[in-house]
Design a protein around this nucleic acid. Structure first.
Lengths: 203, 203
DNA sequence: TAGTGGTCTAGACCACTTT
DNA sequence: AAGTGGTCTAGACCACTAC
């Protein structure tokens, strides 16, 4: 494509205006920009949608349903091996393990299982998680700056089926999320949604 | 928060610089801006990750696997009722129905079932879909401007299990996508991924 | 080293929204 | 009516990078 200066002449406007327009086109994935080599139109525009990080409570309430939270289990332990690998913790790292349920109109909405790196958030050991989920607590106390998210489909085992009020083998969508605060691992969470739940987004 | 003018004074910089900084913070969901009422810091920052619209081929190749495409079925018909509702087509609207498979290193990767509104893309009736999928064809011939995406977990029925080389009842992740071009419905696609497939993204 | 985009300045006018 | 953000201009200097 022409340079910013050329486009500014062609359209009788300032270069700053052209720059902003091209920068936004680049953000949206239509063009690629490189210093010295210029701006190129992409052959395959890389479109992308936004995927919101919402609290279970927010999702439930946005469906005009009544939200209820329940703490299932809470304990402090040494990080198991798989988790130490996942979060890159020392072998003797201590974690807070929380299991809790989110309900929509009193029907199971999401089972949340979460491991929190106590070293990164010492206060969490004294946090009251009986009324609100660990996610809400963390958002205020230790907002993440980096995250990795994965969605996959799983088949309910007996325990999970009981929590979700369904039968063994039912397909459910699961979200796994690892978060960091400035390269310090914060938490690993596995959230399983009720059967039929869909993650939706728009472009 | 202070107004742009005040911040510009405080930091000894131009208002345009403050404006750009605040605009970017707003894009990232940290603040809300309204004319006249000013800029407010959000209580619950609405973080969001990018979700790429990739071709099956791109995903397979990014895993360093060998991509293969196969057309399973292709036919033109009047739009069935459920599809006319989904796409908001007239009852006698004609659609091209395509079923195809994407393979990674010769193992089933994705089953794609797609219905294309012929009225919106007349050329598609003569498109050669034997070598490349309808998605690739559409991206060049009729790029969408609006889309809705949903992910859910499904349980394989007999036919799907055969295509995916698995057993009935296996959980798989399914992506449904409806796209428009300037308010004109283009296509509805249902893409089912092989068991164990995860959708990943970062923040 | 030359050319490109990245960023900034100082000033101006406008559009929207609340009061 | 007033105050805020939204956008633009004209000009400047800088940082990166392909040559």
């Amino acid at each position: 494509m022409p340079t910013e200066t050329q486009l500014a002449e062609e359209f009788n406007c300032a270069r700053a205006t052209v720059n902003r327009a091209l920068r936004e086109l680049a953000e949206q994935g239509f063009v690629e920009r490189k210093r010295k080599s210029g701006t190129r139109v992409k052959k395959e525009p890389s479109k992308h949608a936004k995927l919101e990080f919402s609290l279970a409570r927010q999702v439930v309430e946005s469906q005009n349903a009544n939200y209820r939270y329940a703490l299932v289990e809470r304990n402090v332990a040494e990080s198991p091996g798989w988790l130490s690998s996942q979060l890159d913790l020392p072998p003797d790292g201590r974690v807070l393990h929380v299991t809790c349920m989110h309900y929509a109109d009193n029907r199971p909405f999401q089972l949340e299982e979460r491991w929190i790196n106590i070293d990164a958030v010492p206060d969490v050991e004294n946090a009251d998680l009986s009324q609100h989920g660990p996610h809400e607590w963390l958002l205020n106390a230790a907002p993440f700056t980096k995250a990795e998210i994965a969605f996959c489909a799983i088949s309910a085992d007996g325990k999970l089926a009981e929590y979700m009020g369904t039968t063994t083998g039912t397909s459910m969508i699961q979200m796994e999320r690892t978060t960091w605060k400035e390269d310090k691992p914060l938490t690993f969470a596995r959230m399983t949604h009720h059967p039929g739940f869909c993650i939706r987004t728009k472009y």
